[in-house]
Design a binder for these strands. Structure first.
Lengths: 104, 104
DNA sequence: CTATCTTATTAGAATATTCTAATATATAAA
DNA sequence: TTTATATATTAGAATATTCTAATAAGATAG
């Protein structure tokens, strides 16, 4: 069913941007405020906010306000399992290609 | 290390297109010729060939000729593990949203 | 209220992706 | 060899994505 491939691709599109992957990795085991994410990534507030909006729209993350701040967390922790498998594939690929794997 | 997120994102970009996901799913447990892929997907030859080239460049698939035909297969079967986890996440998301899940 | 801190939204230029149509290339068959 | 079959490549219009800069909006503190 082609529709399912469309939805699947749409979800994967979230993972096709380095900044979003960095955010997801930061959220892997704890929720984090937008401010914290900005500090950790050193990226602009607008940019982080935009990427969070994209992931929220795809329901990859959810948000909740705590006083002054808004905290984001993963909707489904399985996302991290997929993240880590892709990292393994990437690692094995780099190994084969004789690349520097030290930094993994 | 930001470079790693870039490579990770680049690999995930392969999964962010419905046609490429369909091809990967067809290759999940057996190699297949370009002609077979065209038949199964009902898509144009040029288009299939272009998507295969993209995946070959990312070393997600590899090809080998057998007589008249060129067969493609997955480089690393772990790709399918990631594929299936994302499908689960998608399925759970659709379930929550009260969507039709029958067709999964 | 008013100011401040935090987060979201908008606009738009630069860049990237996708598909179709046309053409090229490679192997095999006649 | 020519011809047919299988696959790849190219060009280009249509569309989508990404980032920066500017502005808006929501919550709290004073």
């Amino acid at each position: 069913m082609k529709e399912l491939y469309r939805l699947h691709a749409e979800m994967c599109k979230v993972f096709s941007n380095p900044t979003r992957l960095e955010i997801l990795n930061l959220l892997r085991d704890k929720e984090m405020s937008v401010t914290e994410l900005i500090e950790k990534t050193k990226l602009s507030q607008a940019n982080i906010s935009q990427h969070l909006a994209i992931m929220k729209y795809q329901v990859i993350v959810t948000s909740n306000r705590k006083g002054k701040n808004i905290y984001y967390k993963l909707t489904n922790p399985k996302i991290i399992k997929a993240f880590d498998i892709i990292r393994e594939v990437l690692s094995e690929k780099l190994k084969k290609n004789g690349n520097i794997v030290k930094n993994l």
